[in-house]
Every structure is written in C-alpha cells, then in structure tokens.
C-alpha cells in the first residue's frame, strides 16, 4: 500500500517536472489561432473590416470582438473558410463593410502626378514607387487593390482598373447548365413517352 503511494507520488512528481519543463521549452510564441485566421484573410490590408489591417482583424475575430463576415475582398469564400476553421455558422457579408467586387488594381495617371508622396505613405504593401517632386508609379504585381492610396491623393490622379485576364492564368469557367433547359427537356421527353 505504502509502496504504491510512494511510487505513484514519485511518478507524479517526475511527470509534473517533465510537463513543466516542456511548457517552458516548447512554448508557442503568439496565438496560433490568430495565425491561422490571418492566413485565410486576403491580405489586402484595406481596413474595410474596421480594423487597421488583416492581422488586427484576425486578432479581433479570435477574441470574438468582430464577426467573420466583415471582409469584402475575401467575400463568401473567406467567410466559409473562417466558418469552417472556427466552427461557426457562415453568414452573408455585412453590407456595412462593403460589397464583394472583382479583383482590381490601381494605376497612377502619370501626367497629373505632382509627386507629393502621400500615396506612398498610405500604401500598406509598399507597391508605389516614387520620390518627392518625382512622378510616382504603381507596381502592378504588388498592388493588392486596397484603394487606400486614393483618398490621400490631392490631385485625384489614382484610378481603379480591373485586373486584366491573361491567357495563361485564365481559368476554365463552371459548366453552364441552365435549370430551365433541363426541366424543359425532361418535360419534353416525358410527353414523348
């Protein structure tokens, strides 16, 4: 009896120390859930969700300070992915945050640019190139389409354009099967029978 108690106590002590060591040694830096949520967000850093960037929004979602339907660039796909990850019910995009739109980028009308650098300071991904009193330009491949550079521009020379489809990034469309044709044909074959 006594031996059992002693053996178990010693074992408990050893495992306790082991667990304690492991908790210190293998401590996970930061919140891994925030990391996962952040990975699902489109990283436009546009702030349409009401938070200053994708990571703050991810943190807010995890802390249940924000809902999962506040990201217009991500749209329905992101909402579904977040719902899957967090085991919540998917819901339609909150119209207060904006509408889901096609992918766009911005371009600078270089004739009118006065080189004020305000857009450079606004760009969250350093996609605008230029210097004071020099013409600025947008690096299209780096632009996320967040449109944050548009309001600061004093001469309104930044415009939105849809991303041009290129043949080698073109995706096969979904098969077009109209429900109406389907029913009509079924009725037709039924009446023939």
């Amino acid at each position: 009896m006594l031996t059992a108690v002693i053996v178990l106590s010693v074992l408990a002590g050893i495992f306790g120390l082991l667990l304690g060591y492991a908790a210190v040694r293998f401590k996970v830096e930061g919140d891994p859930l925030v990391e996962k949520v952040d990975k699902l967000l489109p990283q436009t850093q546009c702030g349409q969700c009401g938070f200053p960037g994708c990571r703050p929004y991810a943190t807010a979602i995890v802390n249940e300070e924000a809902d999962i339907n506040q990201c217009p660039p991500g749209g329905e796909a992101t909402i579904h992915a977040l719902a899957d990850l967090l085991n919540r019910d998917p819901k339609p995009l909150n119209p207060e945050n904006g509408e889901e739109q096609g992918k766009t980028v911005v371009y600078i009308d270089e004739e009118n640019c006065i080189g004020c650098t305000l857009c450079i300071q606004a760009c969250p991904v350093d996609a605008i190139l230029g210097a004071a009193k020099q013409m600025h330009t947008v690096i299209e491949s780096e632009c996320t389409g967040c449109d944050l550079c548009i309001p600061p521009c004093p001469v309104e020379c930044i415009h939105i354009k849809p991303i041009q489809q290129h043949w080698n990034t073109w995706a096969w469309p979904a098969p077009q099967i109209s429900e109406a044709t389907k029913t009509n044909n079924l009725l037709e074959s039924a009446s023939h029978d």
């Binding site: 489109p42 990283q43 850093q45 994708c54 991904v125 350093d126 996320t144 995706a171």
Partner: peptide
C-alpha cells in the same frame, strides 16, 4: 479553381510579407 486558389494564397502570403516588413 484549385490552381487559382493556390495563386491567390501565394499572392496574399507575399502581400502579408510586404505589409509586415513595412
């Protein structure tokens, strides 16, 4: 669609990297 998603993930990872660097 799967390739498109892969491209999107790649792009968003790139954007995140640039944003964090900024």
């Amino acid at each position: 669609q799967i390739w498109e998603q892969e491209r999107e993930t790649e792009k968003s990872d790139h954007a995140r990297e640039r944003h964090e660097f900024r």
